[in-house]
């Protein structure tokens, strides 16, 4: 093998040369180590995008509630009868209201509904509002929710974060007679890693016109 027959001292690196190499190696390690401090944060390199001004903000509108008028709620048909009078004392709901689950604190029908004008909602000060303004009724008690809802934090908005957006009113999400959310059926769970397997290959026919 090479070197075997040579003078044994010939291949030995002079001491000072070894020192130079050692120092050089150390210096490299130190420089790399120190540069890690600089490397921690990567400068943001991105495309040279042309300036693009913020698009115009749009109006925030409430999702329109269905127009409900007195004719739509033919309450007077029954409630005019003497044995079916409305009253302020809570009692068992029957007949048409049998299916209504009333679970909204201690509230009773007449806290919100007006027996004379069933197409309107009654606020605490006895003034009447339309059904589409029901949020005014809700926020009498849930006053803390009002600024959050206005800010778009309580409740749900759809459309644009910048541009026209639609606010859902309280009753879009909450059933006013029993406001807490119920449960819903979840969508299917993700596949576990061992369930993700090679899909059956589409042989022959090329799907979706893939060329």
């Amino acid at each position: 093998m090479p070197g075997a027959g040579n003078d044994p001292g010939k291949d030995r690196l002079p001491g000072n040369q070894a020192t130079i190499w050692g120092t050089l190696g150390l210096a490299v390690v130190v420089i790399v180590g120190l540069s890690a401090v600089r490397l921690e944060h990567q400068p943001e390199t991105t495309r040279d995008y042309p300036p693009r001004p913020l698009i115009a903000d749009g109006p925030a509108v409430m999702k329109p509630a269905p127009e409900i008028d007195d004719e739509y709620l033919p309450c007077r048909d029954c409630h005019t009868s003497p044995d079916r009078q409305t009253g302020p004392i809570p009692r068992e709901l029957e007949y048409e209201h049998e299916d209504t689950e009333l679970a909204h604190g201690n509230l009773w029908c007449l806290h919100c509904h007006d027996p004379e004008r069933p197409g309107r909602l009654r606020l605490a000060d006895s003034s009447l509002v339309k059904f589409e303004d029901s949020w005014q009724l809700c926020t009498q008690c849930h006053a803390k929710k009002l600024p959050e809802w206005r800010a778009g934090v309580h409740g749900k908005q759809t459309g644009h974060w910048r541009g026209p957006k639609e606010y859902q009113t309280c009753v879009e999400c909450h059933e006013p007679h029993a406001p807490p959310f119920g449960t819903i059926e979840p969508k299917p769970r993700p596949k576990r890693p061992d369930e993700i397997i090679q899909p059956a290959r589409i042989s022959g026919e090329e799907q979706h016109g893939d060329s």
């Binding site: 449960t183 819903i184 059926e185 979840p186 769970r189 993700p190």
Partner: peptide
């Protein structure tokens, strides 16, 4: 992540 319930 793999929970399966009738209702959530």
């Amino acid at each position: 992540p793999y929970y399966e319930h009738k209702e959530v």
